[in-house]
Simulated scan of single mutants.
Amino acid sequence: MKNRGFLKFASAMTVMTLGGVGYAAHKRSRNPYYQGPVSDHFDGVRFFSPGQPTDKDVGELARWQLGGGREAWPARFPSPFPQDTPPERIEGLRIVHIGHASLLIQVAGRNILVDPVYATRASPVGFAGPKRVNPPGIAFAALPPIDAVLITHNHYDHLDGAILARLWAEHAPTFVAPLGNDAIIRTYDATIPVETRDWGGSVDLGDGIVVHLVPANHWSARGVNDKRMALWCAFVLTTPQGVLYHVGDTGYGDGAIFRDLRERFGAPRLATLPIGAYEPRWFMQAQHMNPEEAVRVFREVGAEQGLGHHWGTFRLTNEGVAEPAEALGRALAAAEVPSERFLAMRPGQVWGG
């Protein structure tokens, strides 16, 4: 009985915290976050990625959880880079990795945070769930004035509600998120205004910078009953410094979303792509790219530079803490891409400037 209780708790925690696990146990018939017309990726209650798999069932979840193959992680995996103190503003382009999927983009005099997570655990509770193994690459107090915050989706390793409320209180930025995420963000501070858009929508951030919401092959949940009730996305920023493409989480799928992106926006100057949380492949492939697939996307969109994130901070899946960076190196060599063109970023590491 004790083991059964533990597995039930572990399964629930996995569903709530992990950006790559589905759970086909839907009981609600009404969406508490978003009400809108049916579309090619919204059935009136839940969102979905057209033509892509949606949810794993409980048996598949148990098979993964009980199947072994999990590499040990250290309690600490410190970055070789010191915490960064960014300049207040720059006219060029500067990217700092805060950790996991959190980035500071400084471009054309504007400061933009993407998926800022400062929590100790990527979890709805403070006593369990994936725990941070390195400190943020920028201390919160060292952040420059923040003009905009972009949220790709609502998983706990991407949407840290407490820090969003603090950012609103101290910086009053523009918040941009896909449909339904405004309701979630406002549970942390009801006064936060959030610009929500569907795939294909955009928000003008000023100074020649426009953020566009584009598809990703992923899913969303904050609990066990709200599966896919808020939309997820990737972002394209058109800026005076070129096109920037940021993916929080995605599976490769059939590759159509990446081909469409290049056709619509042209080849990006920079692509920031997830390279971690991908094992076991039979379970994760639909929602998370591995490094080989990330290199494939990098080449297909025609990016000048790639930066890899979503690895080495929170243990979410089976691979070892350093494996994504090592696998990225192998994939780049196999594709005959110079290693300096696609970096596996560590917290505090800076590109550009």
Rank of each mutant, 00 (worst) to 15 (best):
G253K: 11
S339I: 05
E88Y: 05
E319N: 10
M1I: 08
G22L: 06
I146E: 06
P135Q: 08
T54P: 06
G201V: 14
G5W: 14
V107S: 02
R76I: 09
D115A: 04
P74H: 03
Q349R: 00
H97V: 06
D115I: 03
A230K: 01
L18G: 11
Q35R: 12
D249N: 09
T272D: 06
P144K: 00
E326H: 15
R28T: 09
I185D: 05
F140I: 11
E170I: 00
Y156V: 04
K27W: 12
A234E: 09
T85S: 06
A169E: 05
V321Q: 11
G306R: 09
P193A: 02
Q285S: 13
R121L: 00
A335P: 11
S49Q: 12
V117R: 01
G308R: 00
P50E: 14
S39R: 05
P280Q: 12
A303Y: 08
V337W: 03
M16L: 13
G67Q: 05
V203R: 04
L7H: 04
A25E: 14
G69K: 04
L273F: 15
N217I: 08
W199Y: 03
K27G: 15
W73N: 10
T313Y: 03
D40K: 12
R222Y: 15
A62N: 09
A277Q: 14
A75P: 10
E336P: 12
G242M: 09
D189R: 03
E263V: 11
L66R: 12
